[in-house]
Design a protein around this nucleic acid. Structure first.
Lengths: 233, 233
DNA sequence: TCTGTAAGCTAACAGTGTTAACTGACTGAG
DNA sequence: CTCAGTCAGTTAACACTGTTAGCTTACAGA
């Protein structure tokens, strides 16, 4: 009689408490501070208790990071308002940089840590849904630039170009996150470097002959919807 | 007597043996496999013995990675032969990518791990010496492009532009190293992505009005020699 | 011969992730 | 009402990790 449901609810609740404790430790003291024992202590449980909810420390950490992909996507809502596809792409890059600089710990977990395989069904995010999945969103922006005929021929493979754009933004912030306080290289503020690199890369991809919308080529239209993308739990 | 010299020599020798053992473990089994106990076992010492030669595990690891910066610089010797400065820059990017893909473990240690402060004098590399220091070398290439009048005005700050170029290359390889086997994004081969991004970025930086060598502007000429750069031990 | 130095060893500390075996509360069936 | 089963959570351990205080032992210089 619904008691099994209550138990399931309780189980889910403690799972959430574990995640909350882990997240609190994580944002306050960084990646290394998150130990099973500390998490357990924070919620007054035994370390072993966590293992009835998560297979691994890795699984816990990944469940943690997973939900941040939604946060990242949300931080890009504003760019959709921009009409010009190329400017939209540029703004997306800026939003990405901003997110990374505002949440360096999360960024580190999301993009600078190797993830194990996670089943698509175990994720909050629907892969390839540009409304939830930031990677699919970026890919969509690139595709719009292509369809508007704004990119040179060699940049008309949406996937590769998406990865190039991603890599440009990631390069700036990840370099800054790991080496920003390294006295050997005096880093400019990453926002400045990113601006420069994104401008250079995007300008370099642009068609010199100006816009004039044309119907997408067959090749472009055939690009499959982005089924491989980012996750959330 | 010179016996003190002999002792110093012996001390140095065991230090090198420790480093060699650590390196062997490192390249064979990766970063995580390098534990003080395993290193000690490999050279038939006690873990504690290592601490008479290195303050820390970190110091050991850094001493390890340090020598690789020279290796990296060496892998770029060929690009100096290229006459055109812009093509030289492009080739430098390619060499960087190649090095990273051929030595992913080293790359990870060198550029994807936070380094503690190391005294300049404790390094094999002379900072800012383009002949030893890869970062200074890159900076030199950028400066040559600037002095040849090949870059648009906004890219004429050598330091920031150097960082942008570095970030582009780093973005591609670091993304690939951490997420290359991630089934959620189907990565293109990084060489392809890198080619695309480097071309876009460099083309985007180029002056549309073609070359014709001009004497460097005052602003450019005043750029200080690159005193902050990469190390080696 | 005695003394100081210092490389290396022993043994331990405090921490880590993880697991087998147990406890105790609660559920549903007989 | 009782009995068996389920399962969240605990206990206590294992096998690791980096690191250090204190000892031993060899050796150089006076």
């Amino acid at each position: 009689m619904g008691s099994t449901e209550r138990r399931a609810r309780e189980r889910h609740a403690t799972r959430e408490r574990i995640l909350a404790a882990a997240r609190a430790l994580f944002v306050k003291e960084g990646f290394e501070a998150v130990s099973m024992r500390k998490i357990a202590a924070a919620i007054e449980y035994t370390p072993a208790a966590i293992y009835t909810h998560f297979k691994d420390k890795t699984e816990l950490l990944m469940a943690l990071g997973d939900s941040d992909f939604g946060l990242m996507r949300d931080s890009m809502r504003d760019v959709e308002k921009i009409a010009d596809p190329v400017e939209r792409l540029r703004a997306c890059g800026r939003a990405y940089i901003r997110f990374a600089l505002e949440h360096p710990h999360h960024y580190r977990l999301m993009f600078m840590t190797s993830w194990p395989y996670i089943e698509p069904k175990d994720c909050l995010i629907e892969h390839g849904n540009a409304d939830e999945d930031a990677h699919a969103f970026l890919c969509g922006l690139v595709r719009e630039c292509i369809q508007a005929g704004r990119l040179r021929p060699k940049y008309r493979d949406a996937h590769t170009t998406t990865q190039a754009c991603w890599a440009a933004a990631h390069g700036v912030v990840s370099l800054y996150i790991t080496h920003g306080s390294d006295p050997w290289v005096d880093f400019k503020h990453p926002r400045e470097t990113a601006e420069l690199l994104l401008d250079a890369a995007i300008d370099g991809m642009l068609n010199p002959t100006p816009a004039r919308d044309r119907t997408p080529r067959t090749r472009v239209a055939k690009v499959a919807p982005d089924t491989k993308a980012r996750r959330r739990a």
